[in-house]
Design a protein around this nucleic acid. Sequence first.
DNA 1: TCTTGACAACTGGTTGGACCAGCTGCTAAG
DNA 2: CTTAGCAGCTGGTCCAACCAGTTGTCAAGA
Lengths: 244, 244
Amino acid sequence: MALQTIDKRSLPDEVFEQLTAEIVSGAYEPGATIPSERELSAILGVNRHAVREAVKRLEQIGLVKVAQGGRTRVLDFRHSGGLDLLAVLAERSDALDALAPVLTAALEMRAGIGSDLARLCAQRADAAVRADLLELSAELARVREGAGLLDLDQRFWQRAIDGADNLAYQLAFNSLIRTVHAYAQFSVPWIERELRRGDYRRPIADAIAARDGERAAAATRDALTPPRGFARALSEVRPRRAAR
Amino acid sequence: MALQTIDKRSLPDEVFEQLTAEIVSGAYEPGATIPSERELSAILGVNRHAVREAVKRLEQIGLVKVAQGGRTRVLDFRHSGGLDLLAVLAERSDALDALAPVLTAALEMRAGIGSDLARLCAQRADAAVRADLLELSAELARVREGAGLLDLDQRFWQRAIDGADNLAYQLAFNSLIRTVHAYAQFSVPWIERELRRGDYRRPIADAIAARDGERAAAATRDALTPPRGFARALSEVRPRRAAR
DNA sequence: TCTTGACAACTGGTTGGACCAGCTGCTAAG
DNA sequence: CTTAGCAGCTGGTCCAACCAGTTGTCAAGA
């Protein structure tokens, strides 16, 4: 196995992850209170500052609400969380049956915003972007193998986003990328399979080059829609969880 | 003017907002370093812990990268930020010409994911959801006035999301709601106008009730697409910025 | 001259302890 | 039985010190 960069976890990171895991696993009902900062620092054996930082980060992603004087309450993240939370959920899903819905939802959304993105791109992209997309799709068709494939694909979509010129889509794309990458062992093989299936990006680039928004949207939906058996296919991949 | 709840800002909140404003305003190039925590705490006159907490939150939303030993560097938020950042950008946009693109992008994305959402909802929603949507759309057509209109509209979409049964869309929806609400003085009047324009939710509910995904998607796109002159219309609203 | 290693002087990470500020619930006075 | 007030919790802020990792300098060695 190739050497990897070691991701150093600081104490607040560690606390953040433990608390996140507790909350998203459903150990606390929405409205329930988590232990006080002083208790947590005693239980976890770290300074209160570390706990405090972690809790404030929980608040930022919409998992809890902290109030001075009162206790810190757990929120219903389905209503209080933003899209950034999705990657956190994917990272914290140890069990596959918790992960599969998250990944499925992310890929489904990818198809949805992807096709709308392609539509906008077809309407707005300048000549440079359109040419780049054609070239990238040609290159994608040529390569057809592991290493640079994912990178090329990402560059393709990044360029499409440039053309669509919409910051919201750009940021949503980032969030989804992060979600899918959170569990690369599952998603990467699947995406590679998708990419190898054929000349999937070409029709999109063609439609955009022709400035045909509807065709671009349809081609994208066709290319990105997860196959019916996706959730089942996921569960056939053997999970090998990185040690903590 | 009606009395409002006072939002207490803690010191870290204050620091977070100041730093965010600095960064998104473009005062720092991507790759540039911000002052050290000790410097900032001296400049701002607060304890280093407050600065530290703010910086870690900046890191969480993808505005900076902090490294022990090294200095904290500013990232290119277009590539490192998630969708949650959009609301932060909207909040920090004092100038209208910075805000308009953000709101426009958010509403455009709302139309995109909304229509896909409606499609999924039509395919999947159970009878209860379909009935609720019909009822809510009828109620929306009846009310036609300020107070409960926004709330009803939000309940309508929340129910549609329930039917679509996709966590990613749920969370993205939350992010967009927050973005639009960040500058309620601009967006709320506009949305109210949109809602008053007529019976805009009814065709959507009808299509979903008929389980016709394509029609639901089309109706939603029709209802939610921002009008052409939206950006211009925005600039006619007089900004009255809340005092700090 | 170029390389290399040690080190000083930064950076962020962590700690303990103290005190301030605000909420909550008990309790005693009315 | 009601209610004002206080005790004892909660999070918020500060100080001061030290640990840990990075970076650039600079002198000793090849």
